[in-house]
């Protein structure tokens, strides 16, 4: 197997399942927090979702956003969703297009969280089962290199973070 294909499979082998999301995409209230310190209060993330990756499926579909207590790319087995969002039928097909998002009810803490967003561009996720939503080949997703985007939510209230769907899952 080639080195490149090995990297493919490593990336593909990383699940981005949104386990822990409520049916409406909101964070489950009893989401465990591991041994991280949690400050009092709840916060929200707001911003825009854009696309810089070259879409192969039209860039028009549902967008799933999940905030994890640890980087799910590095430790999917133990990563827990602490906040989630859902944008139905978002259209990012044109250059420069953007849609607004908001993820509420995130527990405040000093340590960074990790965010993954993906567009179900090939339209094969069962939207009625968001707990098991995850990207597959052709879907757009947000990454920082090969890891997740990190964000610190260390005070109650709104926090801004713009999300770029910069990758296409091979």
């Amino acid at each position: 197997m080639s080195c490149v294909k090995r990297f493919f499979s490593v990336v593909l082998g990383t699940s981005f399942l949104l386990a822990g999301c409520g049916d409406d995409g909101a964070a489950s209230s009893d989401a465990p927090m591991g041994d991280m310190s949690v400050a009092s209060g709840r916060a929200s993330l707001t911003g825009s979702v854009t696309r810089s990756a070259m879409a192969t499926e039209g860039a028009d579909g549902d967008i799933y956003i999940a905030v994890f207590d640890r980087d799910p790319v590095l430790d999917m087995a133990n990563a827990v969703v602490v906040g989630a969002g859902f944008l139905e039928d978002a259209d990012l097909s044109t250059d420069g297009a953007m849609v607004a998002y908001e993820v509420d009810d995130i527990p405040v803490r000093a340590e960074p969280y990790f965010l993954i967003a993906f567009m179900d561009d090939n339209d094969n996720v069962d939207a009625s089962d968001p707990d098991n939503a995850g990207p597959d080949s052709g879907d757009l997703l947000s990454l920082r290199g090969l890891a997740s985007v990190s964000v610190t939510v260390d005070a109650p209230g709104p926090h801004e973070l713009d999300i770029d769907l910069n990758s296409v899952l091979p």
């Binding site: 197997m1 080195c3 090995r6 990297f7 499979s9 490593v10 990336v11 082998g13 990383t14 980087d71 790319v73 590095l74 430790d75 290199g145 090969l146 890891a147 997740s148």
Partner: peptide, 16 residues
């Protein structure tokens, strides 16, 4: 990963 084919290792961790 590259030479021994150990594809279950987390490549994102190597980035960090």
């Amino acid at each position: 990963i590259a030479e021994s084919g150990e594809t279950d290792l987390p490549v994102g961790q190597m980035q960090t």
